[in-house]
């Protein structure tokens, strides 16, 4: 029993490190070969996790080998266009200039219902509105609407817009993010002053506070301390 706990703990960290080494990707964004690698790694880890008779090295060695091969393939993918085409394939245009390409639908074995379903998932309910639909190598569908059907942009109306950057998180769960505060050329005294204007006298009372690029401070108290947005 203790052996199972030790082996599971070791393998858990090995798998977490292996996943970190493979890069930041979500399951839905994985290329087919990356998904295969994930499945193999989980299977490898499970073998010696559940069987005390199987040494842990028989899981760790294959996992390390697969991670090395995976990183090698990913680097090859990054450097070479030809390798990318062989390993990941090419995106497929399913709708071109508003016309459905039957040959490509047949080749990718996607029926019209699948296509319509994926389009609906992208908030596009009328196929007549689509100029281009491209099936990406990870299986996602990208859609370009006809110019008359896309949402209006401020540029279309010749409207001036102000700069909008990312808001800076200042307080998270009662803890001040000093690095972000310094980046905005502000200090804790300013923060305390702003909070006291809002009737908050301790930073611990704040659940979340952020500063947008226009200088507006958003503050929300913790549930026990009021819990309202100020």
């Amino acid at each position: 029993m203790i052996l199972l706990i030790i082996k599971t703990t070791i393998l858990y960290f090995v798998v977490v490190i292996a996943m970190k080494a493979m890069g930041k990707r979500q399951i839905g964004q994985l290329q087919p070969f990356e998904l295969v690698v994930l499945l193999i790694i989980s299977e490898m880890a499970a073998i010696s996790m559940q069987n005390t008779g199987v040494p842990i090295t028989s899981s760790i060695v294959p996992i390390i080998t697969i991670v090395i091969l995976q990183v090698f393939l990913a680097l090859l993918n990054l450097k070479s266009e030809k390798a990318r085409v062989i390993i990941c394939g090419k995106p497929t245009i399913l709708i071109e200039n508003g016309k459905i390409r039957e040959d490509e639908l047949r080749r990718t074995r996607i029926n019209l219902n699948d296509l319509l379903e994926q389009m609906r998932a992208k908030d596009c309910f009328n196929i007549a509105d689509v100029e281009f639909a491209i099936l990406e190598t990870n299986g996602h569908l990208s859609i370009l609407l006809k110019s008359q059907k896309r949402p209006v942009q401020p540029e279309d109306l010749n409207l001036e817009t102000k700069y909008e950057g990312l808001p800076t998180n200042i307080i998270i769960d009662g803890q001040v993010n000093h690095a972000n505060l310094e980046r905005t050329n502000l200090d804790e005294n300013w923060l305390k002053q702003e909070l006291s204007k809002r009737g908050i006298y301790s930073i611990k009372e704040v659940l979340f506070a952020s500063l947008d690029t226009s200088g507006n401070l958003f503050v929300q108290r913790k549930a026990g301390a009021g819990g309202n947005n100020i």
Binding site: M1, I2, L3, I6, K7, I10, T52, G53, P55, I56, T57
Partner: peptide, 11 residues
């Protein structure tokens, strides 16, 4: 022996 904590049993 197989349940004991030892290097041989883990690795």
């Amino acid at each position: 022996e197989t349940e004991k904590i030892s290097w041989e049993n883990i690795f």
